[in-house]
Amino acid sequence: MRKSNKERSESMRQSLMDAARKLFVERGYAETTTPDIVASAGVTRGALYHHFEDKKALLRAVIEREAAEVSASIELHSRVPGNARATILEGTRAYFDAMAYPGRTRLLLLDGPAVLGIEAMRTIDEQTAEASLSAGLKDLLSEAGNGGKAEMLAMLLSAAFDRAALAIEAGADRQQCEAAITALIDGLTA
Rank of each mutant, 00 (worst) to 15 (best):
S71V: 01
I185A: 00
Y49Q: 06
N146L: 12
T87W: 04
I63V: 13
T44N: 09
D36M: 15
G148S: 10
F24A: 01
E10D: 13
V115H: 05
A154I: 05
Q14N: 12
A72L: 00
Y95I: 00
S134P: 08
I63A: 09
D139G: 08
R8S: 14
Q14P: 11
A57N: 06
A179P: 08
G46C: 09
E90F: 13
Y29L: 05
A100H: 06
T33I: 03
A67N: 04
M121N: 03
R13N: 09
M99A: 03
A179D: 11
G46T: 11
K22E: 14
A172S: 11
D125T: 07
E151L: 12
R79N: 14
I185M: 05
I37P: 01
T44F: 08
E169L: 00
R21E: 12
K149M: 12
A94G: 05
P81I: 07
F24I: 01
E31R: 12
R27Y: 09
G46H: 09
G42C: 03
L59G: 02
R60P: 08
R174A: 13
S78Y: 02
L48K: 04
Q14Y: 12
A57R: 06
A190S: 13
E143G: 08
L109E: 00
A67H: 00
R79Y: 13
A86W: 05
D173I: 10
E90N: 14
L89E: 08
K55Y: 08
F161G: 00
P35F: 06
A131K: 02
S15A: 14
M155W: 13
A84W: 05
S132G: 11
A47M: 15
E7H: 07
G145M: 06
S11I: 09
M99R: 01
P102G: 01
D162Y: 11
C177V: 15
A84D: 06
I124Y: 02
A84L: 07
N83A: 14
L109G: 02
T128W: 00
A114F: 13
T182W: 10
A68L: 03
F52Q: 02
S78F: 02
G147P: 10
I168M: 09
F96V: 03
T87M: 10
V70Q: 01
A94L: 01
P102K: 01
L107R: 01
I74T: 00
L133S: 05
D173W: 10
R106C: 06
G117C: 04
H77I: 05
E126K: 09
R8V: 10
E7I: 09
Y29G: 01
R65C: 08
I185T: 03
L184M: 13
T189E: 03
D18N: 13
A190R: 15
A57D: 08
S4I: 03
E26R: 07
R163N: 13
L141P: 02
C177N: 09
D173E: 15
A165R: 04
S40V: 10
F24W: 04
G171R: 05
E151W: 08
